Amino acid sequence: MSFTVFLAVLAAALLHAGWNALIRVGTNRIGTMMVLSAVQGIIGLAVAATGPLPAGPVWPWILASGAIHSAYKTFLTFAYERGDLSRVYPLARGTAPMITLAVGALWLGEAVRATETAGILLLGAGILILACGAWAGGESRRMLPYAFGSAIATAGYTLVDGLGARVAGNAAQYVGWLFLVDGVIFAAAMLAFRGRASLPGGGRVWVMGGLAAVASYASYAVAVWAMTLAPIALVAALRETSILFAVLIGWLGFRERMTPAKALSIGLIASGVVLTRL
Rank of each mutant, 00 (worst) to 15 (best):
V205W: 00
T77V: 07
V205L: 01
R29M: 02
G183Y: 08
V175N: 04
L191F: 06
T154I: 13
R239N: 02
A192Y: 09
E240K: 04
L101F: 10
S219P: 02
L108Y: 04
Y217Q: 07
N28V: 12
S70R: 00
A38E: 11
V103P: 03
A188S: 07
P52M: 11
G169C: 04
T77Q: 04
G44Y: 07
Y89C: 06
A212M: 03
M258D: 05
L76Y: 00
A114V: 15
Y174Q: 03
A212L: 01
A8Q: 06
P200Q: 03
G162V: 06
G83S: 08
L144A: 12
T100F: 08
I30S: 12
H16T: 06
T158L: 12
A236M: 06
V160Y: 12
V207W: 03
T77R: 07
R204I: 10
V222S: 07
A270N: 03
A105G: 09
H69I: 03
W61I: 13
I152N: 15
A125P: 12
V25Y: 13
A168E: 08
G124C: 14
W107S: 10
K262V: 05
L122S: 10
V9C: 01
Q40C: 14
S216R: 09
S2F: 10
A114L: 14
L144Q: 10
M33D: 02
V247A: 15
A151Y: 15
Y220E: 00
A230F: 04
T50C: 13
M258S: 09
V273Y: 01
A151P: 10
G267H: 00
S216E: 05
G94E: 10
E116K: 06
F245T: 05
G210Q: 02
A213H: 01
V39N: 00
A236S: 14
M34W: 08
L278V: 13
L106R: 09
G183P: 10
I68Y: 08
T115Q: 14
I127T: 15
I243R: 06
S86R: 13
M98W: 11
I129D: 11
L244W: 03
A64W: 07
L22A: 01
E81L: 13
S219W: 02
A92I: 09
